[in-house]
């Protein structure tokens, strides 16, 4: 039972990380109608900047702030140079241009920083583990990740429902032409939203980079998962991204643990591991196909 609860928390933690990625993606799609494959590159940029600044200053928190800032700056720059030419283009062009951006970012990073992974660890005060009620020992850092994810979700809620910027974002989502007529500087709004999405991806990359490894291509697996999340949740919907992220995080984690165990009841261990993990790896895609078969616009379809 403790094992099950621990895995549930693990799923939740994966889910909150995915939410940080997915919320940026879904905002950019909702407001600008842009499909951005290069979102994973901001995740990588955030992690690299955090690792480099942490190494230079010795403080993870300074590094983290720098990572978010650099990701936001790179995001704004990319929006100004490339992305804004794509808003009125068909999805096909957007997919290809951002696919090209992935190649440029990945290979450019490798050119400058080499192929070896960079060193980045959680700060000493967040390492180690604590005993939760019920006798379960759990790493502090993962709890912090969950807390950050929840804080971002709450922050987004207030930003969107209570601020002027949020009002404009909502207006942009429901009627793109209208908002221009209201005298809002659309170009600036778009750059801002895009940079915000990049900053969230950078935050995710920095947090996860300390837990995993900071290397070229680290954003790609997360990117695909984040796409699954926003498609399940309904593209453009922040609420959908939140529920989708937690659903994907929990299903993926539990599937990976319990499917092999399930097959072991009537197969040899190595066979069960093979079949179990093969199906576990496909599980979230099966779930996505099933959901889209019944709800072609996802669970919480935004107005389109």
């Amino acid at each position: 039972m403790t094992l099950f609860i621990e895995q549930l928390i693990n799923g939740l933690q994966l889910g909150t990380m995915l939410f940080l990625m997915a919320s940026g993606l879904t905002l950019v799609f909702g407001v600008m109608g842009l499909i951005n494959l290069a979102h994973g590159s901001f995740y990588m940029v955030g992690a690299y900047a955090t690792a480099l600044v942490t190494a230079a200053t010795g403080s993870f928190f300074v590094g983290l702030v720098a990572g978010i800032a650099v990701a936001a700056a790179v995001g704004a720059l990319v929006e100004l140079i490339v992305i804004r030419r794509l808003y009125h283009r068909p999805h096909l062009d957007q997919v290809l241009a951002t696919f090209a951006l992935i190649l440029i970012f990945s290979e450019g990073t490798r050119w400058v920083f080499g192929s070896s992974p960079l060193w980045l660890n959680p700060p000493a005060m967040l390492s180690g583990s604590v005993t939760l009620p019920g006798g379960l020992r759990y790493p502090i850092y993962r709890l912090v990740i969950i807390a950050v994810g929840v804080a971002v979700a709450v922050g987004m809620y207030f930003l969107i429902t209570r601020t002027r910027l949020g009002m404009r974002i909502r207006a942009g989502e429901s009627d793109r032409e209208m908002i221009g007529a209201l005298g809002v500087n659309i170009a600036r709004l778009y750059t801002l939203v895009f940079a915000m999405g990049a900053a969230l991806a950078g935050l995710a990359g920095a947090m996860v980079g300390a837990l995993q490894s900071v290397q070229v291509g680290m954003g790609e697996p997360v990117l695909i998962l984040a796409f699954v999340v926003i498609v399940i949740g309904g593209i453009g919907s922040i609420k959908g991204a939140l529920y989708g992220a937690i659903l994907v995080g929990v299903v993926d984690t539990l599937g990976r643990v319990f499917l092999p165990a399930f097959f072991r009841q009537f197969m040899s261990p190595s066979e069960a591991a093979g079949v179990g993990s093969a199906i576990a790896a496909m599980l979230i895609y099966i779930m996505m196909a099933a959901i889209l078969a019944f709800k072609p616009k996802g669970l919480f379809a935004a107005n389109e």
Binding site: H91, I224, V231, M288, L292, P296, K297, G298
Partner: peptide, 13 residues
């Protein structure tokens, strides 16, 4: 049954 971005993503999935 889906269109637009959903079609792109479901074929990818």
């Amino acid at each position: 049954r889906t269109t637009g971005v959903y079609f792109i993503m479901i074929t990818l999935a």
